[in-house]
């Protein structure tokens, strides 16, 4: 179970020490589905764990521009033959009695539904991927699988670095808790340490513009206020991987601008982004890579302009 640890090279060791206090532990995670499903988690040492064949995934789409540079870059996210299956029960069997009767009659029927089917791609450090697709194409499922919320039915997900999942902002707070308490609770869930939250507390409050309401229970907040708070907590961390699910289209215009600015300011620091949005303009502005998902399948993967044009064609039909 315990991961092997070789003597790491000095650079990463030093980097790690620097960041220890300021951030949650940087780590590599491999989530495997199917038989022998497992989650392997390892705090980062040497870069020996990168799965083999990282250079040539994505069906040869990635290096099309002759950017051989990418091959030498570090892998941040690697999705390998990822499939997600859901059982849609035809009737909702919420009660024990119903289930038991049906079970005895061997009458439980499920409709299989593949939300994702055999997805393969590799993102290198610093790349920003826009995920395009119609409603129900599997975009959010993909993000959640990468975040580790869903366990893959088949295949595996590999990721490296501190993750900031900006999914369904504003959900997940405790309504009876005040903003102050929620910051600590939510931060703890995200893996922040107490010292880290202490050091970022003022910044979070300032960014979310909730100075006056720190000690008000969240049940009295408006949904915009909750979203702002969620955004501020999640982005406090200087992540290596940023997962954005429609989050730049919430809140009022002013906050939208502010949050986009904050996100763009992170780009300089080599952050890897996975971005879901229905606004093509936004995807073009933010991302450099893009993919199209359709009914759980990966239709296309490549540079953002090319893919966005193609998506535009698709949707206009």
């Amino acid at each position: 179970m315990a991961a092997q640890k070789n003597a790491g090279d000095k650079d990463t060791e030093e980097k790690k020490k620097e960041k220890v206090l300021r951030r949650p532990p940087e780590e590599e995670i491999i989530i495997r589905g199917g038989k022998g499903a497992s989650i392997r988690r390892k705090e980062i040492g040497p870069e020996s764990e990168v799965p083999s064949g990282t250079g040539k995934v994505a069906g040869g789409n990635a290096p099309a521009n002759g950017e051989a540079l990418a091959v030498h870059k570090e892998v941040a996210v690697k999705v390998d033959h990822l499939s997600m299956k859901f059982n849609l029960s035809q009737e909702k069997l919420d009660s024990l009695k119903e289930w038991f009767i049906k079970f005895l009659k061997r009458d439980i029927k499920y409709d299989e539904f593949w939300a994702l089917k055999d997805i393969n791609f590799t993102l290198y450090k610093g790349e920003r991927l826009g995920i395009l697709g119609l409603n129900g194409a599997g975009k959010s499922t993909l993000l959640k699988a990468i975040a580790g919320v869903y366990k893959p039915t088949e295949g595996s997900v590999y990721r490296k670095g501190v993750l900031a999942p900006l999914l369904e902002l504003g959900a997940g707070f405790d309504m009876q808790y005040t903003a102050r308490e929620n910051i600590y609770l939510y931060g703890a869930v995200l893996g922040y340490s107490k010292e880290f939250i202490d050091s970022k507390f003022d910044e979070i409050i300032k960014f979310s513009e909730l100075q006056k309401f720190i000690d008000v229970p969240l049940k009295n907040y408006s949904s915009g206020m909750k979203t702002r708070l969620g955004f501020a907590i999640c982005t406090a961390v200087d992540p290596d991987i940023l997962i954005l699910d429609e989050v730049l289209s919430v809140g009022d215009a002013k906050f939208r601008k502010k949050s986009e600015k904050k996100i763009t300011s992170m780009f300089s620091s080599d952050v890897t982004v996975l971005f879901v949005s229905h606004s093509l303009a936004q995807v073009r502005r933010i991302c450099d890579k893009a993919m199209i998902l359709d009914h759980g399948k990966l239709l296309a993967y490549g540079d953002v302009e090319e893919i966005a044009d193609r998506y535009e064609e698709m949707t206009e039909k």
């Binding site: 959640k144 975040a147 919320v149 959900a171 997940g172 869930v189």
Partner: peptide, 8 residues
């Protein structure tokens, strides 16, 4: 709502 968002 927590479980749906973050892995712990």
């Amino acid at each position: 709502s927590m479980i749906k968002k973050v892995y712990v």
